[in-house]
Amino acid sequence: MSRSTSTRRAPILAIYATVVFAFIYLPIVVLILYSFNRDGVGGFPPSHLTLDWYRQLFTDGPIWDSVLNSLLVASGAVALSLTVGLLAALALDRASFPGKALFRRLVLLPLILPGIITGLSLLMFVVLSGAQLSLFTVFLGHGTALISVATTELFAGLQKSDRAQEEASLDLGATPWQTFWRITLPNLRLALVAAGLLIFTLSMDEIAVTFFLIGRDNTLPLEIWGRLRRGITPEINAVSTLVFAVSVVLIIVWYRIRMRSVGTEAQQLPERP
């Protein structure tokens, strides 16, 4: 990269970028700030610092039930979408079958279609099958919709990995089964962890599909949604702040993993012709 073009100063652009950043961060800052405000959400400036809303939150049974439900659904969705997504990525990378192009597009549809369409389609399917709406249908919906994310990430991982390594493994006497467990999967482990984290976060936050598939037990976003109708309280700010904090921790984990992978790739680069 040329030093001259990358460090040239552009003061007007810099100011504009700062404004955009302010716009992006304003709601988040407001949210966190007012979760510590004794007089509730609204009014300016925020006055008395308090942890009351957090105290209230920790004794709020339904919220924690919904958090548990969300964790259950998200863990299941990660397992389901990674399993099917891994096979789908392998199939797209290595097999050729009739309708492959269609399959590729179909898998990706939930990623690019509005959630309401996927959610309603699945609702019709559940109703047709005669099943009851429950956390299980939510898990099924999340898992299926997020196969798109798993397939995209893992397919990219497969494309980056060196095919010669699998050939080397077969060449050294390993069966395809051994090669899959000893070479293919370990080579994909970063993509697997990254996809898993992403799917987990997306599932924890999913609302459009969940909206139509939910039964009696709420996930966290739907619990919050339900409370918003009854009016806004700083307790929601408090739980949102906690969700934000967990997200930030996950981001940091994700970057650690990514930096590590980038690091090893960088080390290998000079050896490659």
Binding site: I28, Y34, G42, T201, I207, I224, I232, I236, S240
Partner: peptide, 13 residues
């Protein structure tokens, strides 16, 4: 990575 709902809610407030 911050919840869609949470950000929408923040705008409401």
């Amino acid at each position: 990575w911050v919840s869609y709902l949470v950000r929408g809610y923040a705008w409401k407030t």
